Amino acid sequence: MFAVDLHLHTRPFHNPRGAPTAFDPYGARLMAASARNRGIDGLALTNHNYRVPYLNDDPLFVPGIEVTTRNGHVLVVGPDPPDRTYGDRSSPAAVVEDAHDRGCAAVIAHPFRNSTVADVDAPFDAVEVNGKHPERRAEIERIADEREIPVVGGSDAHFPFELGRVHTLVYADDLTPESVVDAIRDGRVEPRRQTYLTDRLLLPMYDAIHGARDALQRAVPG
């Protein structure tokens, strides 16, 4: 069994251009150091719309990307995710098809945060419990039951102290990008929540930020 965080970023803030930044290699090293300290065996580096091609064995870096689609975000993790995607032009179904062609798993990311991906008829491999909304696990499990897919976990970390608060237990004999994909597809995964002292401050802050953003979007037509 291995502990793998399937959703994290290598820089504090999103790059609107969806392109690599000079901070990415430093962010990756900081995340790796935090993972070793917290007993996390693997990290999926899933920046928005671009892949960071870094290699690491302890913890294992699993290639990944968080794809922005017309309906919301989809995590693509595995041996060969795409290098770049382009904004919200893709349909979730096309992203899933491409992920499968590449030997990767396609995961519904934070389905209750400005997303209708869970309503799309596409063969997703899993749905995510997100570290910013761990209290929504019961709702995530209902989606998983309806679709007959497993639940995985990812912290959605942008800072090292956020890493691992929700992660995935992967039941496999060895840890490789391929074994992670196989475990997801076979249902040999489960989300695990790990509470740290920082969560007492972070989770209320996340709720306030996303609540304010949702209220603003409802107030602005279109």
Score class of each variant (00 low, 15 high):
Ser91His: 14
Arg102Gln: 02
Glu128Asn: 02
His73Cys: 09
Asp88Arg: 15
Val127Pro: 01
Asp98Thr: 03
Arg102Val: 05
Ala94Thr: 08
Asn49Tyr: 04
Leu75Lys: 10
Ser91Phe: 09
Thr116Phe: 12
Asp83Arg: 13
Val120Ile: 15
Glu66Asp: 13
Gly131Pro: 01
Ala105Ile: 02
Val127Met: 00
Val127Ala: 00
Ala99Pro: 07
Phe61Val: 02
Asp57Met: 08
Val74Glu: 14
Pro134Gln: 03
Pro63Leu: 05
Asp98Glu: 15
Asn49Arg: 06
Pro92Asn: 04
Ser91Asp: 15
Asn71Lys: 15
Arg89Val: 14
Val95Tyr: 03
His133Asn: 06
Asp119Arg: 15
Val67Tyr: 07
Asn49Met: 08
Phe61Cys: 03
Arg51Asn: 11
Gly72Tyr: 07
His100Cys: 04
Asp98Gln: 08
Ser90Trp: 12
Asp58Ser: 12
Ala99Asp: 07
Asp57Lys: 14
Asp58Val: 00
Asn71Tyr: 12
Val96Arg: 02
Asn114Glu: 14
Asn47Cys: 05
Leu55Lys: 13
His73Gln: 15
Val67Ile: 15
Asp101Ala: 12
Asn56Thr: 05
Asp101Arg: 14
Asn130Glu: 05
Pro53His: 01
Val67Asp: 09
Asp121Lys: 14
Leu75Ala: 09
Pro79Ala: 05
Thr85Gln: 09
Arg89Asn: 06
Ala106Pro: 06
Pro82Asn: 02
Arg102Asp: 00
Glu128Met: 02
Gly78Met: 08
Val117Ala: 12
Arg70Gln: 15
Ala99Phe: 08
Gly131Leu: 00
Ser115Trp: 14
Glu66Ile: 10
Thr69Arg: 11
Tyr50Thr: 07
Leu75Met: 10
Arg113Ala: 10
Pro63His: 04
Pro59Phe: 05
Lys132Thr: 11
